[in-house]
Design a protein around this nucleic acid. Structure first.
Length: 288
DNA sequence: TTCTTTGTTCCGGA
DNA sequence: GTCCGGAACAAAGA
C-alpha cells in the first residue's frame, strides 16, 4: 500500500517523466473516485504545463500555475503509468505487478505533448484527484492538520516529546495519527515498533526518553531504507516484459502471523492482533 | 454472501 | 476547547 516511501518513489519517477510537459487533453473514464471529479475543474488543466511535482505526507502535488495545483492521493491501489511517444508503458510505483491486465481500472488519462500519456489507474477507487489554490495551501482541508514530515529536522525528539505530553494513547495509534507525524501507515508503523522492541499496545505515557528516541530513529531509518529500495527497484520496463522488476517487499513482521521472529536467538511465532480496526503484527518476546 | 483491506473524516462522550 | 476511540466510507477480490 502506498505510504510515504511509495509516494516519494512515485513522485521521483513522475518528475523524470512528466515534469514540464504540457497537458493537451484529459479523458475521464470514471469520475467517481473517493471524491467526484468535476469535469469543469479538470478542464482547467488543458493547455497548461505540469511545472513541478511535490509530495507532502502521502499526497502528490502537481503544480500547474499560481492559482492551480492538482492534489492526488493514491488511496489503497492508486498508481500511475506513463506511456511514451513510442507507446512503451512504464510503471511509476514498485508495489504493482505489471503482469495483471487491469486496463479497465484506468480512471483518468492525461494526454501530454508528443503523444505521451499519463494514466491514473485505481482498482478500488479509494484514491482521489482534487484541485486547490496553492495560495490557500494552509487552509486546505488535507494539509492543515498534518504533523511534520518524518524525515525533516522538525521531526525531532523535542517535538515528539512535546506532542506526547499529556496524552495516553497507545504508541501504535499515535504513530498512525497524521497529526503527530505525517506519512506513516500501518505497514511501516508495525515495522518501526518491531525494530524498536516496543509492543504496539504500550501507552505513550509509559515510554521513557531512550525508547522515544529509538522509535524516532527507527522511523527515519525504515522510511529512508524503503525509499532507497523503491527508488532502485524502479526499472523502465514495458508491459510485455513484466516478469523482471517486480519488487519483492521484505517486511520483518507485517503480514507474517505465525512465522518465526527474525531476531537472532528468538524463535517465537509472530502474532496478529487488531488495534483500532487495523491488523497489528508483533513478537511477544522481543517487543515489550 | 461475507470478510478483508486502507487512510481519512466525522462524531459523541469524557 | 481538547482528547480519544469508534464508525463510516469507498470498491473489489478471495
Amino acid at each position: 500500500m502506498p505510504e510515504l516511501p511509495e509516494v516519494e518513489v512515485v513522485k521521483r519517477s513522475l518528475k523524470k517523466k512528466i515534469q514540464n510537459l504540457r497537458i493537451k487533453k484529459v479523458k475521464i473514464n470514471d469520475s467517481n473516485l473517493r471524491y467526484k471529479i468535476k469535469s469543469e475543474e479538470i478542464s482547467k488543466l488543458i493547455g497548461k504545463k505540469i511545472k513541478k511535482i511535490e509530495r507532502r505526507s502521502k499526497f502528490l502535488i502537481f503544480k500547474i500555475d499560481k492559482k492551480l495545483s492538482m492534489l492526488v492521493h493514491l488511496g489503497m491501489t492508486g498508481k500511475f503509468f506513463f506511456i511514451n511517444k513510442n507507446s512503451q508503458k512504464f510503471k511509476t510505483s514498485f508495489y504493482y505487478d505489471m503482469k495483471k491486465k487491469d486496463e479497465k481500472h484506468d480512471r483518468v488519462i492525461f494526454f501530454l505533448q508528443n503523444k505521451q500519456k499519463l494514466i491514473y489507474n485505481d482498482v478500488r477507487k479509494f484514491g482521489f484527484i482534487k484541485f486547490y489554490n496553492p495560495s490557500k495551501y494552509y487552509q486546505n482541508l488535507h494539509f492543515k492538520n498534518l504533523g511534520p514530515e518524518p524525515l525533516s529536522n522538525e521531526c525531532n525528539f523535542n517535538y515528539f516529546k512535546k506532542y506526547l505530553k499529556g496524552r495516553n494513547r497507545n504508541i501504535k495509534d499515535v504513530l498512525m495519527d497524521q497529526k503527530c507525524i505525517s506519512g506513516l501507515g500501518n505497514i511501516y508503523v508495525n515495522e518501526v515498533l518491531f525494530l524498536s522492541g516496543i509492543k504496539p499496545t504500550r501507552k505513550v505515557s509509559k515510554l521513557n526518553d531512550a525508547e522515544l528516541k529509538n522509535i524516532l530513529k527507527n522511523i527515519k531509518k525504515v522510511l529512508k531504507n524503503a525509499i532507497r529500495m523503491g527508488g532502485s527497484s524502479i526499472k523502465n520496463f514495458s508491459s510485455d516484459d513484466g516478469k523482471k522488476g517486480i519488487f519483492q517487499q521484505h517486511f520483518k513482521v507485517y503480514g507474517k502471523k505465525g512465522e518465526r521472529c527474525s531476531n537472532t536467538d528468538c524463535n517465537t511465532k509472530l502474532v496478529r492482533i487488531v488495534i483500532s480496526n487495523r491488523a497489528t503484527f508483533f513478537c511477544k518476546n522481543c517487543q515489550k
